[in-house]
Design a protein around this nucleic acid. Structure first.
Lengths: 227, 227
DNA sequence: CGTACCATTGAGTTTTTTCAACTCGCGTGG
DNA sequence: CCACGCGAGTTGAAAAAACTCAATGGTACG
């Protein structure tokens, strides 16, 4: 069940300073005085950039996108969130991103104050919060590296591989986001993303069954691109 | 005194979920069974990418650069560290970066196991560790945004402003790193960085007294570039 | 004073963006 | 049922941005 992914991390990101894997956060959400929120419809906002952090979430189903809007209207997609992911933990007192449901989304909610209160007495929970943040940091640095140093082909390939990995390496990946979302995530225009996908398909690495369903035909070649 | 910067953060990055500013980490380093390490000479490595995390540091003086080497020889500078900064806290069991002294560097060292042990019983310390990581995460996301969406001029301007800010906004900023270091940080080539600086100078926003000493003449115009 | 490293600058090339046109799929309303 | 419109996606051609290659200039240090 992918909802438990962060309790059994398959990423090679080890916990910080100590090595205790930890599911305290999952437990906190499970036992929280939090109702499973009524599901979010596609396009619904879980929270907005600048909002005070009241609730934090754990995604149960569906997909979510987080982004920041720039003053000149450009948009930076900071990440996509899948079942098992936590939302809002790495925020300050204000949310740094707007977070929007891409599909129908079920999530567990928890009061930030309740979580903070528990962490103040529960060292295991405090450590878990830290670990989630460390993972988010690592993910962000990996992403920065791609943005700083890779061309369009590498960026798109890396995105596809990463997303497939997080989906559990299915035969065909079902992309819940638009090309624009991808472009705003990997720092390209929608045109370049589209062209690049067409090129990957022409080279036989990928098959686009429809624009939202992509089959990865030659994972090793894609991985080679991300050197 | 800049060495206490992280105890009195001037960044607008608030602590996570709760608002307690916290200097538990400073205290931990101050009272650690850690010798102030003999200073590092310029070019000396504090640790290497892939090393097990044995010691974590707090910089007292000098400047430090952290970077990751890619398989194809390219290099991504993840950040520069100044007095007051902590090094190695956001790492997993292995360091994700190589960290190198740019100048003569004095630092306090602490055993990772000692810090982890204290954090296991000291909730305040655990929270401080989390907050430092949250800040690193925010910094990384801000950086990713620049890399994803900004042109050369904006990148260089943002770098100069950020560095000046961290130095305490001196009249003239003294860059401890080479052009190559800057280029590898902002995701450009050394040539583009150099050209861009020349342009900023031609436009009167900056004065290069020498290649390592830059005076910011029109901060507002530079800030305008980073819109 | 020469060597080595860092930095700057110019010229040509590559990559990506921009601008524009066109296609596809899908739902709505005539 | 079909025409229409709309948003999403694709593709081509021209323009802009950044990179590569190459040469030159500057500075520190032996």
């Amino acid at each position: 069940m992918t909802a438990l992914r962060y309790c059994e991390p398959r990423e090679a990101v080890a916990p910080s300073l100590d090595t205790t894997p930890d599911c305290a956060l999952c437990g906190a959400f499970a036992s929280a005085t939090a109702a499973p929120r009524s599901p979010f419809a596609p396009g619904a906002l879980l929270f907005r950039q600048g909002d005070a952090v009241r609730l934090v979430y754990r995604v149960l189903s569906g997909a979510v996108v987080s982004y920041r809007l720039l003053s000149d209207g450009r948009r930076q997609v900071t990440g996509f969130h899948l079942p098992g992911d936590f939302l809002g933990l790495e925020a300050g007192v204000e949310h740094a991103t707007t977070t929007e449901a891409l599909s129908r989304v079920d999530a567990l909610a928890m009061e930030r104050t309740e979580l903070a209160g528990r962490a103040a007495t529960d060292v295991g929970l405090a450590r878990a919060l830290w670990q989630v943040t460390v993972r988010a940091f690592r993910r962000s640095e990996d992403h920065a590296l791609i943005l700083a140093r890779q061309g369009a082909t590498e960026r798109v390939a890396a995105f596809l591989l990463d997303f497939a990995e997080r989906m559990g390496r299915p035969e065909i990946i079902d992309l819940p986001m638009t090309r624009q979302d991808i472009a705003d995530h990997v720092g390209l225009t929608i045109h370049t993303v589209s062209r690049t996908l067409s090129q990957l398909q022409a080279q036989g690495m990928v098959e686009a069954r429809s624009s939202r369903h992509v089959r990865l035909l030659q994972r090793h070649r894609l991985e080679g691109l991300c050197a």
